[in-house]
Amino acid sequence: MHDDATHGQGNSVLLPRPTAWPMALALGLSLIFAGMVTNVAVAALGLAMTLAACVGWFRQVLPHEAHVPVAVIAEEVEIASARTLIQRPQRSASAAPRKVLPVETFLIGNGIRGGIAGGLAMTVPAGIFSVLKYHSFWYAINLLAAGGFVDWASASNAFLCQFHLQGLLAALVIHGLTSLLVGLLYGAMLPMFPRYPIVTAGFMAPLLMTGIMFSALNILSPILNQRIDWPWFILSQIAFGLVCGYVVNLHAKVRTPQFQALSFAERAGLHSNLVELDGSQADPSQTGVQRGTQPGTKNGDKEDGAL
């Protein structure tokens, strides 16, 4: 509680009165404990001290808390900084909050949507592969699920071609979770790479993912590693990447040349090199960086110029 009653008479402040009773109570309790490893007499002394301290402490707070006025020493504390800020050339009313970086951002929801769409798209090549090669739609699903079931490690092809409810559920969880997470990542990261969205989203990321899987799959799921067909795997990854990237990009407004001219750190929202978008184009909801010099200037150390 913040009571203004802490102001004492005149130019003084009321502070709690110093007291030794808390220390005495602590000592008393410690002596009781010490008595348990030394001698009962020590504990008895401690008990007496504890009781006395309890009374003493009690009197400090009841019926009124003990206070002592402390005189305030008049003094002047200067709060100033020798450092300056960069002057803004013009300050428009739409000066947007600097905290919203980068200049444009995707909605998180788009990432989720993209993840769902991509996850669905991915099942198409996987399903085709499964049907073509093993004449069963369930094969691919069970193979994925086998990562979650250790005792499926030595399962036969026939077993994998049958329908298993737990296999379906496990595959749904593994596939759904991964798709959502990767979709989110697409939603967050695609705007950082605005230039070649199809290459980035559709090919680079899936290939990277495939590389990681290739090296880790033996430990992650040996059964999958034995039976996986890498070309089909890459195909399904690319299907995911293209669809997810497409859905995410549907809502993007990152095609503007101003945005593409920004440095990576700025697109990521890590850092601002003080580039300002054209005031008229810069919608307050989208504009983050507004301190700077000229519209569309590309990074560089414009701080100096701005001085």
Partner: peptide, 8 residues
Amino acid sequence: MSQTAVIP
């Protein structure tokens, strides 16, 4: 720019 310790 000088101010007192007291924030107004």
